[in-house]
Design a protein around this nucleic acid. Structure first.
Length: 280
DNA sequence: AGCCAGGGTCTGC
DNA sequence: GCAGACCATGGC
């Protein structure tokens, strides 16, 4: 059973105690989010939900800088998925031998609960692309069309803003053929044809259908949005690595114990597959 | 230099 | 339904 979070205000910071397992690099630099940078050994900085955040982790203590308990409870607690008992999930899936192995590669990862629009747009940009360039495109998108909230920090542009642009307007961000996809997504979200902030209230199959009605959104981008942006922990995005891993390691389908947490397990398998290249 | 990147669409069987 | 060409761009 999960015990309540223990946290307190310390000056301008909020500190959360006894957070296990947790790893900032695994969580913030694993390809689920594209706007965080390491600023020192255990400290990372980024923009999420329209705010600049700096965060550090040391031996079970998580420090969120320049915030308060109100904002922590409203935003960051959910963003970092701190109320989910990862230790218990890991314990459960360890009844499977292959999953036990997979957890060893990124057991400190948290599935972030990001802004759904930012998630959708980011994973549209991710298609047939590499993580370095995805980050560059998103940074340029924010610099050109977001709102400046600090020196070098910009919000993610609102769909209503992007909906007014043309593909030509997007050329400075160099997103290539994805421009038309971004615009269609922005328009459908801005008009409310895709009610992205209420998708989490729908059954997952309905939510996926809505997302896939957007030009350029297929099953992979939809599932990443559902998992990283809408809180559907059972979503299971399948990229080339996961597909390969499913064949090689699991004979096609996930063990039943893992299914309630498929999205989290997907992250473990993803890292396992990429690090080992499945040449075992 | 050439292959590939956390895919999706469109076309042609 | 399913395979294959094509899509912009740049990292490695």
């Amino acid at each position: 059973m999960k015990t309540d979070l223990i946290y307190e205000q310390q000056g301008n910071n909020v500190v959360i105690f006894n957070v296990f397992p947790f790893d900032l690099e695994q969580t913030l630099d694993c390809g689920q989010s594209f706007r965080w940078c390491r600023v020192s050994d255990n400290t990372w900085q980024g923009v999420a939900h329209g705010r600049i955040m700096k965060i550090a982790y040391n031996e079970g203590s998580l420090t969120l800088f320049n915030t308060n308990t109100d904002e922590f409870n409203k935003i960051w607690r959910g963003y970092f998925d701190l109320d989910r008992d990862y230790a218990q999930i890991i314990e459960t899936i360890k009844s499977d031998r292959v999953l036990t192995k997979a957890v060893e590669y990124a057991g400190g990862i948290r599935v972030l609960r990001q802004d759904p629009w930012e998630t959708l747009c980011s994973f549209i940009i991710s298609q047939n692309n590499n993580i370095k360039r995805i980050k560059g495109i998103i940074q340029r998108l924010c610099m050109h069309f977001g709102e400046q909230i600090g020196e070098g920090f910009y919000t993610f542009p609102a769909p209503e803003h992007l909906a007014k642009l043309t593909a030509g307007d997007l050329s400075p961000i160099k997103c290539g053929f994805r421009a038309k996809y971004i615009l269609d997504a922005a328009q459908k979200v801005a008009e409310g044809r895709v009610d992205i902030y209420n998708l989490h209230k729908l059954p997952i199959t309905k939510a996926r259908e809505r997302l896939m009605a957007i030009y350029g959104v297929g099953p992979k981008v939809a599932d990443c949005t559902l998992l990283f942006g809408c809180g559907f922990i059972e979503a299971f995005p399948q990229d080339v690595w996961i597909k390969r891993a499913m064949k090689v390691l699991f004979d096609g389908s996930l063990p039943d114990v893992a299914k309630p947490y498929a999205g989290i397990v997907q992250q473990y398998i993803f890292h396992y597959a990429r690090i080992t290249k499945l040449e075992i």
